[in-house]
Design a protein around this nucleic acid. Structure first.
Length: 269
DNA sequence: CTTGTCACCTGAGCGC
DNA sequence: TGCGCTCAGGTGACAA
């Protein structure tokens, strides 16, 4: 999916087009997303979007009639278009506004979701989420405490949304490289000092990616339909067969929980 | 409670 | 050209 920087870039992109606008129609062409698109979504028709928020990788369109949650999954993208533009193959949901602006969700793999929560209610999926990575709550001390008496590897720990939200496979790999930590290391055996560094690196890499407009992904599509391109120099992610930028050693690729990990066996211990 | 595995889906790229 | 295989940015639901 879009990782957190891409979701935040999308949020900033759609916000000026939909905030303050009134929803006139919601068209669901394909309700079979990660979860069925709920009928309650239609309660939002006639309501004004008062805020476009984000929690982890969930985008939240707030209205007085409830909240529309949008998750982009692995392959989702949102774009701002008009009613005159016909939907294409994987354009599953349109949220149409009274000014004829259309917020259109495209998601080939359908791992994304469009959900609804009542006004003032927190959707069940959001209740148990960990802190946002770019807040003070997510600190070295916090992560150290969370890791005590745990045996799972450190990469799985930082990718666990109940520990911290928004750290996907790309940035988990990159942050662990920058912090010099072996992704296979048991999380319970890492010192507080090293966690402080890891948290700093997670924040840095996410902030940099957001500042660059979330163009980490080759096929990231902005809300205006413009495609992104690599601006961020990834040091380990996807670099199979390449050498470490720091020491020249061959990078290693392994599988952890069915996800690829890349790391330098010398720089990361 | 923790940990690891599976499932959900389409499309791109590769070797043959 | 086509087939079969692997891989891909996520994450909740399970079983052990």
């Amino acid at each position: 999916m879009p990782e957190l920087p891409e979701v935040e870039t999308t949020r900033r992109g759609i916000e000026p087009h939909v905030c303050g606008e009134i929803i006139s129609e919601i068209i669901v062409r394909q309700p079979k997303l990660r979860w069925p698109v709920p009928g309650q979504l239609q309660q939002l028709v006639g309501a004004e979007v008062t805020e476009v928020a984000r929690r982890g990788k969930y985008l939240l369109l707030e209205t007085i009639s409830g909240t529309c949650l949008i998750h982009l999954g692995m392959s989702g993208s949102l774009r701002i278009t008009s009613r005159l533009t016909p939907p294409e193959k994987h354009d599953h949901v349109d949220i149409i506004f009274t000014n004829d602006v259309v917020l259109r969700l495209r998601d080939p793999r359908r791992f994304g979701a469009v959900l609804w929560a009542g006004c003032g209610e927190l959707h069940p999926l959001l209740i148990k989420l960990g802190p946002e990575p770019l807040t003070d709550e997510f600190s070295g001390e916090y992560l150290f405490k969370k890791s005590r008496n745990r045996r799972i590897n450190v990469k799985a720990l930082i990718m666990d949304s109940h520990v911290v939200v928004g750290v996907g496979n790309i940035y988990a790999n990159e942050a662990l490289f920058s912090a010099g930590i072996d992704p296979r290391k048991a999380s319970g055996e890492i010192s507080a000092k090293r966690y402080a560094l890891l948290v700093t690196e997670i924040k840095t890499v996410l902030q940099q990616a957001i500042a660059q407009g979330g163009t980490t992904l080759r096929d990231f599509v902005r809300e205006d339909g413009q495609t992104g391109y690599f601006q961020i120099e990834l040091k380990v992610y996807g670099r199979s067969g390449e050498t470490c930028v720091a020491c020249g050693m061959m990078l290693q690729q392994i599988k952890q929980a069915q996800r690829s990990s890349w790391f330098c066996p010398v720089c990361q211990q």
